[in-house]
Write a protein that binds this DNA or RNA. Structure first.
Lengths: 216, 216, 216, 216
DNA sequence: TATGAATGAGGGTTCATTCAT
DNA sequence: GATGAATGAACCCTCATTCAT
C-alpha cells in the first residue's frame, strides 16, 4: 500500500512523500492515534529517516498543518478577483474553498478536526483561520462602504459576522463531503444564498442569484 | 488541585465526580491524550475505582458525550417556546445555545472538538447534531409555509441551510468564548441578524430586530 | 448463575459453598487465572466474606487441594477390600479411581492439571500421589510374596512400576473424560489388562480377565 | 543471572535467546505467572524488543510450545529404526523420550504441565501428544499382526492402551527427573518391562529382557 | 454474620525516539 | 542517503486484599 520502495531519492522528494503519508495518517487517525511507524511505512521509508528529515512527531505535524493551511489559503486567494464587486468576490472565494476541501479531504481533516484539538497546534490553525476571517471582514467592510451602504457596522459586529460565515462554510464543507451527490458548487450556492440574502429573504422568495457560469 | 479527598462516598456521588473530572480532562486534552491516571487524580479517587464504576476509557468517554449532548439538547429545547413565531423561536434557541456553551466550555469542547475526531464516538455526536439540525430544519420549513412565504424551498437546500446555521453557531460559540467581553446575548444577536437578514440586508441597513428583553 | 443469595447461613455451610465455587473455578481456569471476584460471585457471597473464612487465595486453593485429594484417596480406599487377592484389589481400586474422577471433573482438574504447575501447591498434591503410589507399591510387593512368586523385585523397580501405573491411570482418566462413550468401567478394564498382562501377552491372546459383575 | 548483555545481535540470534528465556520461565512459573518482564530480563533485552520480535505473550508461548513439541517428536522419531521388531522399536523410542525429557526439563515442563492447563494452548499440545499416541498405536497394531498374534484387538482398546503407555511414560519421566540417581535408561527399562510383560508376568519371573547394549 | 467502598502493586502492550553502521 | 537494532517511559487495565460499617 505504501509508496514503491525506491532508494536514494533526493531529500526534497523524500520529504514530500513523508508529508503526504503524514497528512493522510494524521487526517484519518488524529495526531495522538497516528503512529510514526505507520507514517514511515506508508511513506516507504524507515523511521530514522523520518526523524532525520522532519525531526519529531510534533514538528512533522506542524509541518503538515502549515503546508495544508498555506495550500488552502492559496486556493481561496487564487479564486477571487479583487476588481469584482463584493458579492462576486465572496462567491468565488466560497467556490474555491469548497472545491479545495473536497479535493483534499485528509488535509482538510487535519486542519478542521485534528489540529484544533490541542495546543500548540491550535495556534497554527487559528492563525490561518484568522487570515481568512480578516479577508472576509475586509470584504464586508469595503463592500458596505463602496456601495454607499451602511458604513456604520460596528467593528465587533463585523468580526462576529465573519466568524459566523467562516464557521458556516466549514460546517457545509464537512456536510458536503459526507453527503454523496453534493457538489462544491451547490454548497457554495447554498451558503452564498444564506449569507447574502438571509433566511428572511429566502422565505420571501428573494434569494441572492448566483451568476451564470461561463467561466467554470 | 484535585477534589478534596473525601472517603467513603456513595457510588452515585463518586460517579458524578468522576464524570466531572473526565469531561474536564477530555475537553482539555482530547480523548487520546487524556490519561485515566489524570482523570482519577482529578476526581480524587484511585484508578481502579474509576474502572470499577465506569468500566473503561471508551465507556467513560461515551458516557461523557452522552451526558453533555443530552444536557445541551435539553438546554436548547428548554429555551424555545413552540407557540412563538419562527424567528422568535430561533432567537430563543440561539440564546440558550450560546448561554449553555459558555457555561460549559469543557463539555462543549468534548462535543465540538474531541468527540468528532474518531469513530466510534463521532456517531454519538453526529446523532445529537442531527437532532438539532432537524429541529432547525423544521423551524425553517414550518415558518416558510405558515407565513404564506415561499413554500418551495427544496429539501436539500433546507438541509444545507440548517447545517450552515448550526455551523455558524458553533463557530460563534468558540469565538465568543475565546473573546473576552463577548456575551452569549451578543453572540446570539449577531448570528440571528446574519441568519435572518443576510449580509446584503445588513449592509442596506435593514437588520433583523431583536425583541426587547423583558424576560431575561 | 451463582447460588441463590440466602443470607445468614452458618459458617460451615458458607465455607462449603465457597469451596465448591473455588474448586469449580480453579479447575476450569487454573490458579492464576481464577479471580477471587469470580469465586465470590459464584459462591453467592461478597468478597470480604471469602477472606474472612478462607483467609487468602493461596489458603483457599490449598484447602481445595486438600479436600479433593482427601476425597479421591477416600474413594479409592473405600473401593478395595483387603481380603481379596492382589489383582482383584487392583481392579477394584482402579474402578473406584475412574469413577471418582469422572464424577468430579473439576476436583480432578485441580489435582491433575492445576495444582502441579506451581510450588507450593505441588507438594500438597505430591503427598497425596505418594500415598496412592505407596498403596499400589505395597499391593505389588505383597502380591509377589504371597503368591510364591518372584519375591526379589528390587525396591526401586517396584517404585517405578507403581509410578508408571498411576501415571497410566491418570492419563486414561483424562482420556476417558474427554472421549464420549467411554465408561469408567471400560477405562479400568483397559488399564487392568495392560498392567497385569502386558502388551506381549495381550498380543498373544492371553489377556487378564475381569471378573463378572455381580457387585456393581 | 540473565544472559550477558551483548548489544546489536542479529534478529535470529536474539529470537533464540528470547525463546530460551521464555521456555525456562514458562516452564518454571507457568503461563499466567510468568511475566514478560522476567522473560525479557532473562533474555538480556528490553521488553519492547520481545514484543517487536515475538508479538505477544500468547504468541510467544505458542512459539515455545511448537518448538518444544517439534523437538520432542523429532527426538523420539530419530531414536527408532523402522526395520527393527516392534518391541525393539518401542524400547528405542522410550529411551529417546526419557533422554530428551531429562535433558530438557523446562521444555518438558512447558509441554507436560503448563500448556495443558488452558485453551487455546492445550490444542497445540494435544496435537503433538496425539501424534505420539498414533505412533505407538500403529506400533501395537502392526506388531500384533506381523507376529501372527492376536489381530483382533478392538480399535478403542488399542487407543486406550496407547494412552496408558504414553501416560505411564510421562509419569515416569517426571519421577525420574525428580529422583536423583535414576537414569533415562533405567526409566525406559522399567516402563518397557511393565508395558511388555505386565505385572503378572513380572511377578512370575518372566520379565521382558532388554537387549544388550553395544550401541549405547 | 455480612458487605459496599476503596486501593497498592503490577502486568501486557505501545510508542516516540536514538544508536551504530 | 539510509536502516536494523534497541529502549525509557507511559498507558490501559486487573487483581488480591483491606477498611469501615
Amino acid at each position: 500500500m505504501g509508496a514503491v520502495k525506491t532508494k536514494r531519492m533526493p531529500r526534497a522528494v523524500r520529504e514530500q512523500q513523508m508529508m503526504d503519508a503524514a497528512v493522510r495518517t494524521f487526517g484519518q487517525r488524529g495526531y495522538m492515534a497516528a503512529s510514526m511507524d505507520e507514517i514511515a511505512e506508508l511513506a516507504g521509508v524507515s523511521k530514522p529517516l523520518v526523524y532525520l528529515y522532519l525531526n519529531s512527531k510534533e514538528d512533522l505535524f506542524t509541518a503538515c498543518i502549515r503546508r495544508e493551511a498555506t495550500a488552502l489559503v492559496e486556493a481561496v486567494r487564487a479564486g477571487v478577483m479583487p476588481e469584482l464587486p463584493a458579492d462576486r468576490q465572496l462567491w468565488e472565494g466560497l467556490r474555491a474553498f469548497f472545491t479545495h476541501t473536497a479535493q483534499n479531504p485528509d488535509g482538510w481533516a487535519v486542519l478542521h478536526l485534528q489540529a484544533r484539538t490541542r495546543e500548540p497546534f491550535a495556534a497554527e490553525v487559528t492563525a490561518m483561520r484568522e487570515e481568512i476571517v480578516a479577508f472576509v471582514t475586509q470584504l464586508i467592510v469595503v463592500a458596505a462602504r463602496e456601495a454607499h451602504r451602511n458604513p456604520n457596522l460596528p467593528e465587533r459586529e463585523v468580526a462576529g459576522l465573519a466568524e459566523a460565515l467562516v464557521g458556516a462554510a466549514e460546517a457545509l464543507a464537512a456536510w458536503a463531503n459526507a453527503t454523496p451527490g453534493t457538489t462544491a458548487r451547490q454548497a457554495a450556492a447554498t451558503l452564498m444564498n444564506f449569507a447574502w440574502a438571509g433566511l428572511g429573504n429566502l422565505m420571501d422568495g428573494r434569494p441572492w442569484s448566483p451568476p451564470p457560469t461561463p467561466e467554470s
